[in-house]
Amino acid sequence: MEEKKENNEPKIVAFLCNWCSYAGADLAGVSRFQYPANIRVIRIPCSGRINPLFIVKALQEGADGVLVSGCHPGDCHYISGNLAARRKFALLKNFLSYLGIEQDRVQFSWVSASEGNIFASLIKKVVDNIKKLPANKKLVRKRVGVQEYGWY
């Protein structure tokens, strides 16, 4: 990712679970609910799939924010994955704030498959919040002499 000077157009990674939030995002599209073009969606089977490393990695790669969204409590397609995600997330947030990462940079939410409008307003809110923050520089890895795709 190229280095940014201003934060007018933040890049936000959105991890959406396949069964609820990704479907909710699709419904937002079908219903033509407009929202800012700042998110980059990664489809995951379940919010429980989110290893805290992914969130840290996204920030290291220069993302200005990360959103993780799963099914509502009790609706998880995989019984309880969303609750497992929530627990990990709560711990990670403590850790991130210890590192000086702003609270609003990393967010967790529940969006069901029928909540297209809620998804759109969620993205608006998340983008607004992150626009208020300076560009993410804290964790960004310096890429000196490292080839692209060369993390292995």
């Binding site: 799939r49 990695k57 993302a63 990990k88």
Partner: peptide
């Protein structure tokens, strides 16, 4: 669902088709 892969402290367990490596490459 991948709850196991997200929990493993030594990345010993992973999910075929949506491996850690794939997600990390996408982020990069």
């Amino acid at each position: 669902c991948g709850a196991c892969a997200a929990t493993c402290r030594s990345s010993a367990i992973d999910v075929k088709g949506i491996r850690d490596e794939q997600i990390l490459l996408a982020l990069e």
